[in-house]
């Protein structure tokens, strides 16, 4: 289980890194935390000719902002940076709640926020967070920086809008301030395994009525999905179990769920309803 031969480059500035990947093109791969890429290389499922290791690139990690204004996350920020909420408020609390479901402690020390999004595993928690909350992704290349909405970024399993000459450098999460309640529920075979289904939601409830809603699911299709129609349905509804069950049923009807050895389509669709109901109930509690 040794990788096929590859060249290794370690730029120290973003400009240098961009120049390298521009020159190398399709044959290159960016190494961030390496928690998915390196195993894939060892299995020889991934065979990049050149690895461009961005761990030494200055200025790509760190968290700024707050729950009320929104949070800006450097792409090289490690998952473990969220083990305790970086700020107060619903958004930071949600991230701290979600991060504990990402694999295991050692993996969270190395894996990065931007690496997770760029890898685009359908069961990635950070992909779900960004898709559901409507994050803006900042993508750099030699020609400058472009902004892409999370909704447009994820194209399918391990497929994104990133070009070979581009690096995801920063992720902006919109505010989720006072008045919002959040919920997250994930079901996996063992603690830390890939989600068989998970749901993330944020609700703003006034006097028992849902005023605003965000709802997304992961691990059930080829990418994290924000459920806009279900969100629209939720708004104006009473925040109780019947509403949540109806929302879950809507989602179950609208998603063509994926299958694998741990969850066939029937079971996964069934789980999908359960995780949505549980996440919504938590957000409303």
């Amino acid at each position: 289980m040794k990788p096929a031969a590859f060249a290794y480059l370690a730029p120290t500035t973003l400009a240098e890194a961009l120049e390298m990947i521009d020159r190398i093109g399709d044959d290159g791969k960016i190494l961030a935390g390496g928690q998915s890429l390196v195993p894939a290389m060892n299995f020889r499922l991934a065979r990049p000719g050149t690895l461009v290791d961005i761990n030494g690139v200055a200025g790509l990690s760190g968290i700024s902002g707050d729950s009320a204004r929104g949070i800006s996350i450097g792409a090289l920020t490690r998952h473990a940076a969220f083990h305790t909420p970086p700020f107060s408020g619903p958004l930071a609390d949600l991230l701290a709640k979600v991060v504990r479901n990402i694999a295991h402690y050692p993996i969270r020390q190395r894996g990065t926020f931007g690496g997770s999004l760029s890898h685009a595993d359908p069961a990635s928690e950070w992909c779900l967070v960004t898709a559901t909350l409507g994050a803006t992704l900042h993508i750099a290349s030699l020609t400058g920086t472009r902004e892409v909405a999370a909704a447009d970024f994820f194209r399918g399993t391990f497929t994104t809008a990133l070009q070979p000459s581009e690096i995801l450098v920063r992720i902006d999460l919109p505010p989720l301030g006072a008045g919002w309640g959040t919920g997250f529920y994930e079901f996996s075979r063992r603690k830390g395994d890939f989600a068989l289904a998970m749901a993330l939601t944020a609700l703003r409830i006034e006097g028992g009525t849902i005023r605003e809603a965000r709802l997304g699911v992961g691990g059930v299709a080829d990418r994290a999905l924000r459920l806009a129609k279900t969100e629209a349905f939720l708004v104006g509804q009473p925040a109780h179990a019947e509403t949540f069950a109806a929302a879950a049923a809507m989602a179950q009807d609208s998603i063509d769920v994926s299958e694998d050895i741990h969850a066939g389509a029937d079971y996964r669709r069934d789980l999908l309803g359960t995780v949505i109901r549980r996440a919504l109930a938590e957000a409303a509690a």
Partner: peptide, 27 residues
């Protein structure tokens, strides 16, 4: 937890510890 699974063509589908699941200390 643990199950080795061949597909109908005889490909073993559980060839890593991401697919074949021994319990951990948490289970």
């Amino acid at each position: 937890y643990e199950e080795l699974i061949y597909d109908e063509d005889g490909n073993l589908l559980t060839t890593s510890l991401a697919d074949y699941l021994p319990p951990t200390a948490l289970e």
